[in-house]
Design a binder for these strands. Sequence first.
DNA 1: CTGCCCATGTAAATCGTTACATGATTAC
DNA 2: GTAATCATGTAACGATTTACATGGGCAG
Lengths: 201, 201
Amino acid sequence: MSLRFAILGFLSSTPGTGYEIGREFAQGAGAYWSALPSQIYPELRELEKLGLIRGRIAKGDRLRRRVFHLTPQGEVALEAWVRSDTEYPPERDPERIKLIFLDKAPTQLIRRHLEQHIAHFTAKLEEWRLTRDAVARGTHRQLSARLAQRPEQDHALIACLKALALDGNIRRAENEIAWAREAIAAIETLTVAEPSLMPRA
Amino acid sequence: MSLRFAILGFLSSTPGTGYEIGREFAQGAGAYWSALPSQIYPELRELEKLGLIRGRIAKGDRLRRRVFHLTPQGEVALEAWVRSDTEYPPERDPERIKLIFLDKAPTQLIRRHLEQHIAHFTAKLEEWRLTRDAVARGTHRQLSARLAQRPEQDHALIACLKALALDGNIRRAENEIAWAREAIAAIETLTVAEPSLMPRA
DNA sequence: CTGCCCATGTAAATCGTTACATGATTAC
DNA sequence: GTAATCATGTAACGATTTACATGGGCAG
């Protein structure tokens, strides 16, 4: 059900089209959730059918874009969901499941896997740090839109939560990178110590 | 496709039944992948149809359990998969997506969410540390079975990779706990500093 | 003989990805 | 005019969860 509420969440900051929601998932909001247009558009229909959002085509818009906004019921539904207990999905880690069965491969290949792990999270890290900087500088669009419609006394908390969530992701990326580096070192040590690869003169 | 290879990986350590695979996903292997019986049994059929595994009912077994083992083709398929580049799935984090929209809730409730985050990863941490200890002590069943069928010179690397993967999970859990603690502190600070909640005498 | 775990499944529903289709607008 | 981007979708497939069904073995 999370996609549904991720969409409601987006629309609770600012009204928007399906396309904009998709763009956000591919960028900023992609830090926590993601979906493709083929899933977004049907979900928007469903949400409208349920009365949680409403879409209007701005008059004079030749593209006939539908701009969706939350209904009061939508706000209530979102609020109930965010407050409800989180159900954590089972762990599914495509890299670590590979790693434990890579024990027949040459250490060079294991190393390459760990380096790609580092590369993956380095890219994520950069992305999330940029977003985090935008939040700190007040140039984050979604955040600014959200702040604009809320009393000033709430602004600090709103920005704080946004920053905290990004910090969590940033720390996770840093942690994965540090782990992979140490893993490479550990395997290196093992290989060097391996007698079969280091014949005594 | 990862489920398929997670099963092949399990069977590459030791032959086993669908039930045993399910048990493993619910425990040890659950650290990296997971699946329910309703997904496991059909997948075993498919894998047998593809010739990657074969199942036999041990004679005299009244429960008619099917014990599956890898075929040579299965070994090849597993080996090719573990060596292939990992495709990282999009980020989907049900807690952090909630957190950023929790900005209308009382800080007490935000705190409760973060405490449940800590509780979740504390439980995981304990689980993974126990497994990690079993690996270190040589009492880990899956690992022992795997070592038993491999030349002794490989044992160090096999155990090392298993331990490294668990370390990765352990570090991640520790990191999430540390993050949530700091997040609680940050929100606490904000609340205390909030003039509306701290009228000057 | 009853409750619990062992053991294997099927069916339906939900969630997510891949592939395909279509057309308008904008920048070059 | 043509390529890139904007914009909205449908269809089919694949992955995962939920619910249901069934029966044997074993301990008290």
